[in-house]
Amino acid sequence: MNQDKTNIITDLNGYLINTQDWNEKIAIKLAQSEGIILNSIHWKIIYFVRMFYQEYSMFPKIQTLINIIATQHNQKKGNSRYLIQLFPKKSVAQQIAKIAGLPKPKKCL
């Protein structure tokens, strides 16, 4: 386990051990470690994923995230290519989960 200066404990892959430790400052730090500067669309996805996880104890399907982007922003951005531009490293689901302070999803793209 790794412990950083803010006393947030992560596993060896950088996922928070305790999801309750998450806050926006931690998300920004995790995003920066992934080479991402968060914008308003990132935040909407992060908060949606956290809400979904709290309610269903699972990560939403990627198609659900694509539909949210299309509904809230526009159809041109409602596709997997745009989601991959937002979260370009690893799998989209893994990167979103890490930044959102959630466990690594079991099934990933």
Rank of each mutant, 00 (worst) to 15 (best):
L30Q: 11
K89M: 04
L102C: 01
I68K: 08
Y47Q: 10
G35L: 08
G35R: 09
H42M: 05
K90G: 14
N2T: 10
A97K: 02
K29C: 00
V49P: 02
T71H: 14
L86P: 02
R81T: 15
K98S: 02
N18A: 07
K29E: 05
Q3L: 15
Q94P: 00
Q63V: 13
I36W: 03
Y53N: 10
N79D: 14
K76Y: 12
F52C: 02
K44F: 03
K104C: 12
I9R: 10
K44W: 01
L38W: 03
L16C: 08
A100S: 15
S40E: 13
I36Q: 02
L65V: 14
G101M: 07
K104Y: 10
S91F: 10
D11Q: 14
A70V: 08
Q32A: 12
R81W: 11
L86I: 06
K77W: 10
Q63P: 03
Y15V: 05
L16P: 00
K29L: 05
D4S: 06
I62S: 11
Q75R: 15
I84N: 08
L102G: 01
Q95L: 00
F87K: 03
I26K: 02
I36N: 03
Y15E: 03
Q85L: 10
I17F: 11
S57C: 10
K29S: 09
I17G: 04
A27F: 05
N79V: 11
K104H: 11
T19W: 06
Q20D: 13
L65S: 04
I17N: 09
W43V: 01
I99T: 04
L83Y: 05
I68F: 07
I17W: 06
M58L: 13
S40H: 12
L86H: 02
N7Q: 12
L16K: 01
H73D: 13
T64D: 10
N79S: 12
Q94F: 03
D21S: 13
V92P: 00
M1R: 12
L16E: 02
I28C: 02
D4M: 07
K104L: 13
N79W: 09
L65T: 06
K98G: 01
T6L: 11
Y53A: 07
F48E: 07
Q63M: 13
I36T: 04
Y82M: 11
I37S: 08
P105I: 03
Q94E: 15
F87D: 00
I46S: 01
W22Y: 10
P88E: 07
T19S: 15
Y15H: 14
M58R: 15
I36P: 00
K77Y: 14
I69K: 04
Q32I: 05
